[in-house]
Design a binder for these strands. Structure first.
Length: 422
DNA sequence: TCTGGGGTCCTAGGACCC
DNA sequence: TCTGGGGTCCTAGGACCC
């Protein structure tokens, strides 16, 4: 059996932990740049605020309903996530951290105990230890555990835990479950399903395997099996190194000058390099892209990207910035009002052993020491305290985040400030 | 005025090999 | 008139996830 524990309204709940006066108050959390809604408390959902709604379209709704609005605070959410995961890990030998607010628990060997009771203990303890409310679904496959989790969240009677452990419960659950809510069914597949008369997860399981394979490839076939109770998706408890690393941001305001965009791209490149070093990898290829605002109807549109292969793979901030700059020079066109830029590391290899080059002119050992020093300084002082000159001061491209809460759990000065207020 | 960011997996088709 | 068979690797694009 598998368990899926999912935090309820995670980002909104994180904000609420440190502001208990917001209990019962609708909360929304906005995306980077205070763009659109990415998390809502139950109260905000009841108000009918949709996921992904642009903030500027909700101004009135927010004011009339006294909605508490937050900019996203990933330092806080990341730390709260760690606390939740650590608590979960005390209950079972293996967990798979699936996302910032979700984890699968391997319940193999727990079949002889009452899983409902066990699940409730996990839910209760996690909420008590972290302040974050969670729900749990338990079933013979991961996909069914996801289904069960949604039931646990939706109906209060379950007390946070729903178990699918008999054929009868499985069929009943699938009959009441929209096919579009199944893990692995997106917008496009939903359309095809509906077109073929499939509306519930149960309808889907009644189709033949070959029909599913033909229309939805192996991905659909796996899903079909999983819904029947045949596990196809195993636990993956050891996070593997990333195959692709990307840093991209919309600018706080529109940019036109090459120098301003270069500053943003340099910072994105530096961030990619730091991520590479953290996972002990090097880049063998990178890509830079820039784009104008696709929502604007009056501005001329321009989107471009360019890729480059690196002959001697590197994770040096200075080198990666140099490459990124070359690419940006290639794709930048004056006269456009740019909205967003990004750097993507596309070919990632391990940093040791590294294939050298006879004609290499860089003293890599010396470079390595420098990077190590920079990383340790920045770890202690905050990211980007020590940086390459081309990263600049970030005045123009920096994000908008006007409603940012303090980093209650990770920033010492803010912790002291909060304590003093208390 | 104003619309996020970061990933994975799969398939088809082209280029190439013997 | 008629022109093989079997394979790999790479890339772009599409679908999905949170």
């Amino acid at each position: 059996m598998y368990g899926l524990v999912d935090c309820n309204n995670f980002y909104a709940s994180c904000e609420r932990v440190f502001k208990p006066d917001l209990n019962g108050v609708p909360i929304v959390v906005l995306s980077n740049n205070d763009g659109c809604v990415i998390a809502r408390s139950n109260e905000a959902k009841t108000l009918g605020i949709p996921m992904g709604e642009p903030a500027f379209k909700m101004k009135e709704l927010i004011e009339t309903n006294q909605v508490a609005v937050f900019s996203s605070n990933y330092a806080l959410y990341g730390d709260m996530s760690n606390r939740v995961m650590k608590t979960l890990a005390t209950f079972v030998p293996t967990i798979e951290i699936y996302s910032i607010d979700e984890a699968f628990l391997n319940l193999k060997g727990f079949e002889h105990i009452d899983l409902n009771v066990f699940g409730r203990k996990i839910v209760r303890t996690t909420s008590k230890n972290t302040g974050i409310p969670v729900s749990m679904g338990i079933a013979p496959t991961k996909t069914l555990a996801k289904v069960a989790n949604k039931f646990a969240k939706k109906y209060k009677g379950y007390k946070g835990v729903c178990v699918i452990d008999t054929e009868e419960k499985r069929i009943k659950a699938l009959q009441k479950f929209d096919i579009g809510d199944v893990w692995g069914v997106g917008r496009k597949h939903l359309k095809t399903m509906n077109y073929n008369g499939i509306y519930t997860a149960y309808d889907f399981t009644q189709r033949s395997k070959s029909w599913v394979r033909r229309n939805f490839t192996v991905v659909g076939e796996r899903m079909w099996n999983e819904l029947q109770g045949i596990p196809c998706i195993e636990m993956d408890s050891t996070p593997s190194a990333k195959k692709q690393i990307c840093t991209s941001r919309s600018f706080g305001s529109r940019l036109t000058a090459f120098e301003d965009i270069l500053e943003a791209v340099s910072n994105h490149a530096a961030s990619c390099a730091a991520k590479l070093r953290r996972q002990k990898s090097c880049a063998a290829g990178l890509m830079v892209f820039i784009m104008t605002n696709p929502f604007s109807e009056r501005d001329a549109q321009y989107v471009n990207s360019k890729h480059l292969s690196i002959s001697i793979p590197t994770n040096s901030t200075a080198e990666i910035i140099q490459y990124a700059k070359m690419l940006l020079q290639d794709i930048y066109r004056p006269g456009f009002s740019y909205k967003k830029a990004g750097v993507i590391i596309t070919e990632i290899i391990s940093d040791s052993p590294l294939q050298g080059d006879l004609f290499d002119t860089v003293d890599r050992e010396k470079h390595k020491k420098l990077l190590k020093a920079i990383d340790s300084l920045n770890d202690g002082l905050g990211s980007n305290k020590v940086r390459i000159a081309s990263q600049g001061y970030g005045k123009k491209w920096k994000l908008k985040n006007e409603k940012l809460s303090p980093r209650y759990t990770t920033n010492l000065s803010e912790i002291i400030e909060v304590k003093a207020k208390d």
